[in-house]
């Protein structure tokens, strides 16, 4: 039997929450009903007043969590380093914000936080003694477009390897395992007027190079890209360049990185863009990933993280419930692959 457990990131249900189809309790009940054992929160998204929610808000969350029986797997936090328009926060200021996020995560019942990609190594290291003191682990998200080759990510990983703390690790997002460019993204950009020849060329370059990140981006997620002349020759508007850049937010990374980084992996984001009716994900080969994770003996969680929501054309319904249901069913069906 596989030791892998499944959770759902509440990120998946953001549209249902924003448009009041589900409230906080409803989201948790839905996650329970689709068969997950755990739940992942974005406290900035659904806990009002974060990072200083009222006691009543925290009690409401913890009561709903207890009633659901779901395990609190991970809280996704952010350091608002851009809180002022005229400057970026200095390291000491960012450390203070990070400590607040650790505090609120603890109050909400978590012992693991996900640090967003490009969180600074020095900020994390400075907050580590506090994290150790209150019993929180901090794991950097390895996200496509800003993954292992990115400047800030590789600096963070060097810090993690040097420090060797139980309270540091990584969260790997499956968006780094996109064998195919998500067609829902291409379709969305076509619907808002991307030049069809540009859409075709980006799809073709993705296939020819494995992904477009390695074909024309730095891996820092900062937009400093160099597009090949045969692509720029097709550009007719800023939207074309935006789409081409956006395509670098997916990577096709060999699964061997799972072996290499296994001792540091605390959690996975089971990213998905489009669950098909046949129970497969359009871009990501889940059975291959689950087979590898079972071979490695992974015994943590994989969170369903639906990101097709943002590629739904304006005013069309977002089928987040159906997509999450299919994704959890797929995970359940393949959980023992390779065992």
């Amino acid at each position: 039997m596989s030791q892998i457990k499944t959770s759902v990131s509440m990120y998946s249900l953001q549209d249902s929450y924003a448009r009041h189809r589900l409230d906080l309790e409803g989201v948790l009940q839905f996650v329970k009903d689709v068969g997950a054992q755990g739940v992942e929160l974005i406290s900035d998204q659904m806990i009002t007043g974060t990072p200083f929610p009222s006691d009543a808000t925290v009690t409401r969350w913890r009561d709903a969590l207890d009633r659901s029986g779901l395990a609190p797997v991970c809280n996704d936090i952010f350091i608002n380093s851009t809180i002022y328009k005229n400057r970026e926060l200095r390291v000491a200021e960012q450390v203070d914000l990070l400590k607040r996020e650790l505090d609120v995560s603890k109050r909400l019942g978590f012992d693991l936080v996900r640090l967003v990609s490009n969180t600074r190594a020095d900020v994390t290291e400075a907050a580590l003694p506090y994290a150790e003191q209150i019993g929180m682990a901090m794991a950097l998200e390895i996200h496509a477009g800003m993954s292992f080759q990115g400047g800030l990510t590789s600096e963070w990983i060097r810090m993690m390897r040097r420090v060797q703390s139980e309270n540091l690790g990584i969260v790997v997002d499956f968006g780094i395992f996109c064998d195919r460019h998500p067609r829902v993204s291409t379709d969305y950009f076509r619907s808002i007027g991307v030049t069809p020849e540009v859409a075709d060329a980006v799809e073709r370059i993705y296939v020819e190079n494995g992904d477009t990140m390695r074909a024309f981006a730095s891996g820092d997620g900062f937009g400093d890209v160099s597009f090949p002349p045969e692509l720029t020759a097709l550009f007719r508007s800023d939207l074309d360049a935006e789409f081409a850049f956006f395509s670098t937010g997916y990577e096709s990374t060999p699964l061997d990185v799972l072996d290499e980084y296994f001792p540091y992996i605390r959690h996975f984001h089971g990213k998905f863009y489009e669950m098909l009716e046949d129970g497969t994900e359009y871009s990501i080969d889940y059975p291959a990933i689950l087979t590898r994770l079972n071979a490695l003996g992974y015994d943590g969680y994989i969170s369903s993280e639906y990101e097709g929501n943002r590629f739904t054309p304006v005013d069309q319904p977002i089928h987040d419930h159906e997509q999450v249901r299919r994704h959890q069913a797929m995970l359940a069906a393949h959980l023992n692959d390779g065992k």
Binding site: Y11, T82, I83, K85
Partner: peptide, 15 residues
């Protein structure tokens, strides 16, 4: 308007 993002922010981050 609702926010063009997936989380709440301090008002100062309205650019």
């Amino acid at each position: 308007t609702l926010i063009t993002y997936y989380r709440g922010i301090p008002l100062s981050m309205v650019h």
